[in-house]
Design a protein around this nucleic acid. Sequence first.
DNA 1: ATTGCTGCAAAACGTTTGCACCTAT
DNA 2: ATAGGTGCAAACGTTTTGCAGCAAT
Lengths: 154, 154
Amino acid sequence: MKNDQASDILREYLKRENNRITPERFEVLDAALEFDGHFSADELYISMKNRNSRVSRATVYKTLEILASCDLISPRNFGDNMKRYESSFKRQNHDHLICMDCGRIVEFVNPKIAKIQTDICDELGFEPSSYSFNLFTRCKNKKTCKYYNDKTNS
Amino acid sequence: MKNDQASDILREYLKRENNRITPERFEVLDAALEFDGHFSADELYISMKNRNSRVSRATVYKTLEILASCDLISPRNFGDNMKRYESSFKRQNHDHLICMDCGRIVEFVNPKIAKIQTDICDELGFEPSSYSFNLFTRCKNKKTCKYYNDKTNS
DNA sequence: ATTGCTGCAAAACGTTTGCACCTAT
DNA sequence: ATAGGTGCAAACGTTTTGCAGCAAT
């Protein structure tokens, strides 16, 4: 178990919810926290398989929902039809800018967004839970945009 | 052809892009603009079928991408794995608040968001194209929340 | 005449489910 | 002992694709 603190959070959550504490769940947690960047359930499953894990696809899908419930990972949505996740353990909350040409994803932090969230919820009578804010853009600098360089080089 | 102005936009776009001007594309456009609220490609296809349209599913899917390219409709993403669209012809740009208990979707307008979009893009060197901002919430007033009422009544 | 578009069905894709077996409680 | 979790494969729902025929240019 590589992330003792995160493991504790998961263990406490499972106890509280009367869910069982199984080694597979901690294995998925470790893989999710170690994954560099955003991942889909299937990508995580494949990466675990490649490291000879014997955890099944079904367990990965189900466990990721649990990890999202206890805020160890955050669900993301970049406009394609794929649920993605990202470790949120010991990470600052942030949003995403996506270049539609090269697919590059840049993270940014803007404190005004949380304020808008609470303002709108107060005004309309809802309890805020989470939000998603994505900027779809195009690289200004075509020299560093993978899409333009791939086109030029081919 | 019920929406002359929208039809013109589509026609001009198709000419500009050297795509063919077919009756099916205008049929999908009319159905999309008339649809009340958000719809998936399949929902639109079904609703067209119910009105005895003979346009195929494949054509509906492909045409919706074209309509999104010329900004007659906007793609939406509410966290499930389903592409949705919404007419944006003659409609003010707006964002969405989703109640995770009852599924209710409330639209809202907040001018500060567009400012944040351009600020972030300027700062990071990207051209803004579009954005998505969704608030995931829970109804404060349980009496008007469909989810709680369904639970109580059953 | 030449492409590009259409309709159909099949395939693909990510995800969920049913079930027999296993294991944490 | 028992209920909840696991692994596997099959099923699911949405979207994409291949292809023959059709229609816009």
